[in-house]
């Protein structure tokens, strides 16, 4: 019993990490139909910037703030320099552009920072919390709390605010959105800033658990991407559920089947879900225009 609970807690911890990364994908996808493969680099930048600003003497909260603001600024720059100019390009070109951007950011990070592995202290100490014979670290609660808070924030944003609806409108039909007076350029800028900021926040929260280095982005992006797809791209609920489901799947597979093939189990389930629900669990139905 306590074993099962530990597998579940392990799964939730990992799943919350994936969910936070996946949530970052949703906004940009909603605004522009672009899947941003550089999302993992935002997560890396959040962690690494905090480490280095903190090491330079700034208190941790200030370092965190600096990391989020800087990363958000970089997200805006990426939109202006790489995404806006490529408007209307086919999916494969956009995939290459965002992968190119991620390679660029990784290359810059290894020059500006270093190639070592880093961490900073957990926010609420390292003493595990015991629940019926199983344990979880306080930092995991921070990550889970962060994922839930971001989810609620996004859900409110997209359903309750004019701006959030403007983002959705831009995604559905850019021209129509412009015609009804939505400043679509601003919407795009905002979504990149938000996505990058959420990515950086994710990086800050997970670093005490996963540690960080200049090349953690790709692995996180792939898992986050898979989680977002599993849940259904563009839906915050999908990102949250997809991330947690992926994490639980890995934890339970490692616990009961084989730790060697836990990633395989995750991808097999994703393939199976996409086979029966080609839009993911909560994805939007779309029809082709002729």
């Amino acid at each position: 019993m306590s074993e099962l609970l530990q597998f579940l807690l392990s799964g939730v911890t990992v799943g919350a990490v994936y969910a936070l990364v996946a949530l970052g994908f949703t906004i940009i996808y909603n605004a522009s139909d672009v899947v941003n493969f550089a999302q993992g680099e935002f997560v890396m930048l959040g962690g690494m910037t905090t480490v280095f600003v903190h090491a330079a003497g700034a208190p941790l909260p200030l370092a965190v703030l600096a990391a989020i603001v800087l990363t958000a600024a970089l997200g805006v720059a990426m939109n202006k320099l790489a995404i806006e100019p490529a408007r209307g390009a086919p999916v494969v070109s956009l995939v290459i552009i965002t992968i190119g951007a991620s390679i660029f950011i990784r290359g810059a990070a290894q020059l500006i920072f270093d190639k070592q592995i880093h961490s900073f202290p957990a926010f609420s100490g390292d003493d595990p919390i015991r629940i019926m014979g199983a344990t979880i670290l306080p930092q995991s609660l921070w990550v889970i709390g962060g994922a839930v808070a971001v989810f609620i924030g996004l859900w409110l944003f997209f359903t309750r605010t004019l701006l959030g609806r403007a983002v959705l409108a831009t995604s559905n039909n850019r021209l129509a959105a412009q015609l009804v007076g939505i400043n679509t350029t601003f919407v795009m800028t905002l979504s990149f800033a938000l996505s990058a900021g959420i990515g950086a926040l994710a990086g800050v929260l997970v670093t005490p658990i996963t540690l960080t280095s200049y090349d953690v982005g790709l692995g996180l992006a792939l898992k986050g991407f898979a989680a977002a797809m599993l849940g259904g791209m563009g839906n915050p609920k999908g990102a949250l559920v997809g991330g947690l489901a992926l994490g639980l799947l890995e934890g339970l597979t490692a616990g009961y089947i084989s730790s060697q093939y836990k990633d395989a189990a995750a991808f097999i389930v994703i393939l199976a879900v996409l086979f029966f629900l080609p839009q993911g669990l909560f994805g939007r139905k779309s029809t082709d225009r002729v």
């Binding site: 074993e3 392990s10 911890t13 990992v14 990490v17």
Partner: peptide, 20 residues
Amino acid sequence: DETYDPKDADMTAQLTKIKG
């Protein structure tokens, strides 16, 4: 005899199995 992927974030599942 357990394994983990080098990029994994949490190995408590594997360790719990070993512990048990």
